[in-house]
Amino acid sequence: MGIRINVTSVFVDEQAKALAFYTERLGFLPKTDVPVGEFRWLTAVGPDEPDGTELLLEPDQHPAARAYKAALVADGIPAASFAVDDAAAAHAELTAKGVRFTQEPTVMGPVVTAILDDTCGNLIQLASPA
């Protein structure tokens, strides 16, 4: 069957703002940008994996999506987790750029994790090997 993951998504409150944050702050590259009705099929990829899994910046238009996001954020639960080379270095770099973290780099068993606010209604976890 050859099934594989080509797209995963985060629900964002504004697509343009999300694209700016994910590319300018986090360093993803824009991939696909196609108008779909009043929204866009808008994806980004990791800079080292231009043909890798795409992150879909999906509008959180459904009321349940917003309630779901708010509940996760309240308890500090990330909507997605991304790999970085060094979570502590990424935290320092992003903090200098004005990105807000709800969890500073912390050793959690085999990984170091840190959690940031994507300004679009989600928390995002960064993880690197401990």
């Binding site: 308890d75 500090g76 639960i77 990330p78 709800t102 969890q103 500073e104 912390t106 959690m108 068993g109 994790t113 959690i115």
Partner: peptide, 15 residues
Amino acid sequence: RDGQSLFELCSRLVM
């Protein structure tokens, strides 16, 4: 570390 979310506390407790 003072000031933790429920998620962070749960992660620390299990890990």
